[in-house]
Amino acid sequence: MGSHHLSRELARQGHLVVHVSTPLSPLRFTGSTGSSNLTRRWREHSMGPWQVEENLVDIVPFTVVPVQGNGFLPRPVVERAVFPGLRTTLSALDMDDPDFLVIDEPLFAGLEDVLTPRRVVYRPTDQYEGRFHGAAQARLVRRADGVVATSEQVLRALPARARQVPHLTLPNGVDLAHVVRPASGAARIAGAVYVGAMDDRFDAAWLAEVASLAPEVPFALYGPRPPGRDWPANVTLHGPLPYDDLPDVLARYRVGLMPFRDVVQNHGRSPMKMYEYLACGLFVVSTGAVRQVSAEGAPGVWDVPDAAAAARRISELATSAQLNQEGADVAQGKGWVGIADRLAAFLQSL
């Protein structure tokens, strides 16, 4: 299983679950971006399989060869170049012949041949481009006994066989127990916040323009800093945010931002970030790139691709005396517990 959240909830249902992270490789350690996260993951790798909680074991493999070539290799990287070997590690846990192998990352293609699972389920969470991802994904779809996509857009983008085998659309959810905290009574900042990656899917140009057109609104960005951009004076870059600190940060603001570029990698994304914002009572302003945001029709959420219009909307919402209680109520129905229940029922049906 590759999802932290689903692994945890399935384990709490009484299933024995091994969560296998995407392997670390030497290339991950070039540069300084996300260095604290890499240090943590290296420490977890060094621990070997470790018991996270009852019924749940976590493994962080290491490979000397980047997994990007997996789809083309006759003997996949996950079999030949991961240390310690996954089959050996999982055999020691008596998990080399699991009832279900759920693969969330296409570059893990080949793990289905390393192990002897009763059923293989492919769970794509994005629309993937490029020959490496494409070849690996095609390999998984050919082998899969079932497919669980996080959006209809992702499902439609898969090879035709994905819709010929048993399949399910199951969006990501929100960790309600973690994100929602009792009100502290502290006043919220009349500002906007973004928490997440600032990679090539992040629309820095849109956000910089929006901020410049709303100079009275403070904008707080949490995540690895994007290189080579000058930001308006009302934008503060705080760097990566530990997950444990997420609830306290979101509770300080009134508007959550989803500043994503209009590219295919974003179109099929599941709006987990939207539900994190909503669960904390924030209003949400998005560029409209994540199609599922519009499809959900959640209260207090606006798709505003035009920067000037977005700046006006954020200025209005940031000074609102009300929280987005209707949105928070909707988010209560999007927790991982219910999503895990649906996934477990689907797996049992195969």
Rank of each mutant, 00 (worst) to 15 (best):
S46I: 10
V64R: 08
T30P: 10
P61W: 00
V20T: 13
S36L: 10
V64H: 14
F62R: 01
Y128K: 07
L73S: 01
I59G: 07
M95H: 03
R41Y: 12
T33V: 14
G85C: 01
T63C: 10
L27K: 13
P117W: 02
V57N: 04
E54K: 14
L86I: 09
V20W: 08
V102D: 04
R123Y: 03
T63D: 03
L56P: 09
I103G: 02
R28I: 14
G34D: 04
I59Y: 02
R43F: 15
T39C: 08
P49K: 06
D97Q: 15
V64K: 05
S25D: 06
L107E: 01
T125Y: 08
F72Y: 12
D97W: 04
G48L: 00
L27S: 09
R40F: 15
P49V: 04
V120T: 14
Y128Q: 06
D58F: 13
V67R: 05
I59E: 02
L111C: 02
D97V: 11
R119M: 13
M47Q: 14
T63A: 06
V64Y: 10
R80K: 12
G69K: 07
S32R: 09
A92G: 12
R123C: 05
T89I: 08
D94C: 07
L86E: 00
P26M: 07
I103H: 06
N37V: 13
W50Y: 13
T30C: 12
T39A: 15
V121A: 05
S91M: 09
V102T: 07
G31W: 01
V114D: 02
P84L: 13
R80T: 15
D58E: 10
V20S: 02
S21A: 13
P61L: 03
L90T: 07
A81R: 12
S91P: 03
D113E: 13
S46G: 15
G71L: 00
R41T: 09
F100R: 08
P61M: 01
T116C: 05
L56A: 05
V120W: 02
S32K: 15
P76T: 11
M47N: 11
V67I: 11
